[in-house]
Simulated assay, not measured.
Amino acid sequence: MKYENLLSDSQSGIATITINRPSKLNALNSETIKELHNAFKAADAASDVKVIIITGTGEKAFVAGADISEFADFSVAEGGQLAAQGQAMLFDFVANLSTPVIAAVNGFALGGGLELAMAAHFRIASDNAKMGLPEVSLGVIPGYGGTQRLPQLVGKGRAMEMIMTAGMIDANQALQYGLVNHVVAPEELIEFTQGIANKIMRNSSVAIASAIAAINAGYEDGENGFDTEITEFGKCFGTADFHEGTTAFLDKRKPKFPGQ
């Protein structure tokens, strides 16, 4: 599929989706959000894709925010619809994908950019990255899940401070906060992220999908994460991957998971 604002590539089980709007510091407009939905959907459906990496073109920005010119004159109803549609189409969609999604955060991840990175299953940052949710400086609040995911990742107090001050933190502070898992040099970011993706791919993709569902359930209102874990644990016993994994362990060999 051809995209206007993205580059999409798949090699050796890893799909890399790159937001490609360098003149706009990869800012998210409505068309880019639609394209990202389609790219993630296609990668998740591809049987040969085991891990998805999301990143931005260049070293300046992962995503520098949303394209403010698109919604500066919106009404109350239009603003609410913008957030609802965006969350459903992209941010919640990514968070609940059964294929692992890693955000390789290169440079600025602000506003909707940080919200996209937080929707990924975890994050790796280049040491020049800067992150923040500056929406209150524009008279609005984060609308793509930022007020919910940031406290889950860094704690309520730190999230309150970051959102209220509209300030940025650097990569090392993000690492200290637990917002990112690793910090590496910009030139090492993609290779390092691919290295972690390769470690993930050694394991059962079916079990990983169940683990994602169980972990996410613990953060959803009305869901009991322990109950979901029990259900997903039980489902694993009916999979070919479970049979292969346990048989390989008993045979003292490396498993060759069929992904079923």
Rank of each mutant, 00 (worst) to 15 (best):
1 M>W: 07
3 Y>L: 07
6 L>I: 05
6 L>K: 14
6 L>G: 10
7 L>H: 13
9 D>K: 15
11 Q>P: 00
24 K>F: 11
25 L>Q: 14
26 N>Q: 11
26 N>L: 05
27 A>Y: 04
29 N>M: 03
30 S>T: 10
30 S>Y: 07
32 T>Y: 04
34 K>F: 03
35 E>G: 08
35 E>T: 07
37 H>A: 04
38 N>M: 13
39 A>H: 11
40 F>N: 13
40 F>W: 08
42 A>Q: 15
46 A>M: 11
49 V>P: 08
50 K>V: 00
50 K>P: 02
51 V>F: 04
55 T>Q: 13
58 G>E: 13
61 A>W: 05
62 F>I: 04
64 A>H: 11
64 A>D: 13
64 A>Y: 07
65 G>C: 06
66 A>S: 12
67 D>S: 12
74 F>W: 05
75 S>I: 01
77 A>S: 11
79 G>M: 11
81 Q>C: 01
83 A>N: 08
84 A>S: 10
89 M>S: 12
90 L>P: 02
92 D>K: 12
96 N>K: 14
102 I>W: 06
102 I>Q: 09
104 A>S: 14
105 V>Q: 12
110 L>G: 05
114 L>Q: 09
116 L>G: 05
117 A>E: 08
123 R>W: 00
126 S>H: 07
136 V>N: 14
141 I>A: 14
141 I>E: 13
142 P>D: 06
145 G>W: 03
146 G>N: 09
148 Q>G: 02
148 Q>F: 00
148 Q>S: 09
149 R>P: 01
151 P>R: 12
153 L>R: 15
157 G>K: 15
158 R>C: 00
159 A>M: 05
162 M>P: 04
169 I>W: 05
171 A>T: 06
171 A>H: 10
172 N>L: 01
174 A>K: 12
175 L>E: 08
178 G>N: 10
179 L>T: 04
181 N>W: 03
182 H>Y: 11
183 V>W: 07
183 V>K: 09
186 P>F: 05
188 E>I: 00
190 I>C: 04
190 I>N: 10
192 F>D: 09
192 F>N: 10
199 K>N: 05
202 R>I: 00
203 N>R: 14
203 N>W: 02
205 S>L: 01
206 V>N: 07
207 A>P: 02
209 A>W: 06
213 A>E: 12
213 A>F: 01
214 A>Y: 04
214 A>W: 06
217 A>S: 12
219 Y>L: 03
223 E>S: 08
226 F>D: 09
226 F>P: 00
227 D>C: 01
227 D>R: 11
227 D>I: 06
229 E>Q: 10
230 I>Y: 07
234 G>T: 11
235 K>P: 00
239 T>D: 04
239 T>L: 03
241 D>G: 03
243 H>P: 00
244 E>H: 03
246 T>D: 08
246 T>Q: 12
247 T>I: 00
247 T>L: 08
248 A>V: 01
250 L>E: 10
250 L>V: 03
254 K>W: 02
259 G>I: 01
